[in-house]
Write a protein that binds this DNA or RNA. Structure first.
Length: 387
DNA sequence: CAGACGTGGTG
DNA sequence: TCACCAAGTCT
């Protein structure tokens, strides 16, 4: 089977045959697809914390967390988030900073703000009841085409197709249609997905549309993989037109950049504190969140960082260097911080887990052992040697 | 519609 | 090291 590949040299004189315009699955193929997929899902569905719950709030939270985010990362946050905010009302009443703190590390922080806003809307104007149709769900902030369909089908059994990256890839491979970022291309995928969704279940306890949608995504996530699909294990191999081929347009290139941050700590009677900088509330990126104070590169030219690590944000690879300033001596580094005083603050290490830290700050503090997983430990290896 | 928005795993 | 990219949404 061939692997996934890009096609910079794809020529326009492609069609070898005058193929029909809509190369979608016919009715018989669709029946086979749906049946084989359902049988496979029954046996191979992963057990995930948000599977088999009958609480639309939990389904909603899981779907927002899963947007562009790996299952493993969501597993790390889902249970704790729900312990902190077990109901829509609890979420609506919580301060935004607490919600962001619980979201720290998941990325796309706007999701947390919108989830919070939506919870307040639901409590204030809908009497705390989560909307039950995809059309109504779609009106909530942070809930788009995908998420409204996912919640409506999984939590309420609505017969509506979800189309995410997995579903799109599966359908492109099965039908053999090349990827095209056009209205026609999207319409084809949408039509194809809709043709496969079962009717709403009449039997209580059954949810054919919800199971089908999750099965489509599960197939994409575990078998119909982007780079090297496991076609020999695929339940719909029989009706697949490509069995692994999938042409995609080339992607944008990555940039690289080196950045430096200050790690400054001090001991107080109440415990150790670390100096943090709060990002501008109007910043486009991670507004209002806390991070280690950034240092200009020319201020650290002659020094050795106590830690180096890589951190990628969208299209940029950051090579991150952390420089330590200890207590009251070594003021030179401390003075090199360009930030104004009013955005700098000393924060108790024991309370760091209550703050909306950026993912990078959290990673650095954790790596350096200031923050443990629970955020409750006192620091040990502040002065670790350079790597 | 293109670009912005985070992070961590993978090969 | 580097490129790719994962259960998208908003502007």
């Amino acid at each position: 089977m061939a692997s996934h590949r890009s096609s910079p040299d794809l020529k326009p004189e492609q069609p070898l045959l005058p193929v029909a315009l809509d190369p979608g699955l016919n009715h018989a193929e669709a029946m086979v697809f749906r049946r084989h997929l359902a049988a496979w899902y029954l046996r191979h569905a992963r057990e995930l914390p948000w599977r088999g719950v009958s609480d639309a709030y939990r389904t909603w939270v899981s779907e927002i967390m899963l947007q562009q985010t790996r299952v493993a990362a969501v597993i790390d946050h889902y249970d704790r988030f729900l312990r902190l905010f077990p109901t829509v009302v609890a979420l609506a009443l919580a301060p935004e900073a607490d919600v962001l703190a619980a979201w720290s590390g998941l990325g796309y922080y706007r999701r947390a703000r919108m989830l919070h806003k939506a919870a307040q809307f639901i409590v204030e104007t809908l009497n705390g009841a989560i909307p039950e149709s995809s059309a109504e769900l779609r009106k909530l902030p942070g809930v788009g085409e995908y998420t409204s369909a996912a919640i409506a089908s999984i939590a309420f059994g609505e017969s509506i197709a979800v189309v995410d990256g997995n579903v799109e890839r599966v359908l492109l491979r099965v039908t053999g249609r090349p990827e095209e970022a056009t209205a026609a291309g999207r319409a084809f995928i949408q039509r194809q997905a809709a043709a496969l969704v079962p009717h709403k279940a009449r039997t209580p306890g059954k949810n054919a549309p919800g199971d089908h949608n999750q099965a489509m995504m599960e197939l994409g996530a575990t078998i119909c993989l982007p780079r090297a699909p496991l076609c020999l294990h695929c339940p719909v191999f029989d009706v697949c037109r490509t069995r692994g081929e999938h042409l995609t347009p080339p992607r944008a290139k990555q940039r690289s950049e080196t950045v430096a941050f200050l790690l400054s700590t001090r001991k107080k009677a109440q415990g150790v504190e670390v100096l943090l900088e709060q990002r501008d509330h109007a910043a486009s990126l991670m507004a209002g969140m806390y991070e280690l104070p950034p240092l200009p590169l020319d201020a650290v030219e002659d020094r050795e960082p106590i830690l180096r690590l890589r951190h990628s944000i969208t299209n940029t690879n950051y090579y991150v260097e952390i420089y330590a300033a200890e207590g009251t001596h070594d003021r030179r580094l401390r003075r090199a911080v360009p930030a104004s005083k009013d955005v700098l603050s000393w924060q108790r290490v024991a309370r760091l887990h209550e703050l909306p830290l950026t993912g990078l700050a959290r990673k650095v503090l954790h790596r350096i052992d200031v923050l443990s997983v629970g955020g409750l430990n006192t620091p040990r290896n502040i002065h670790v040697a350079a790597p």
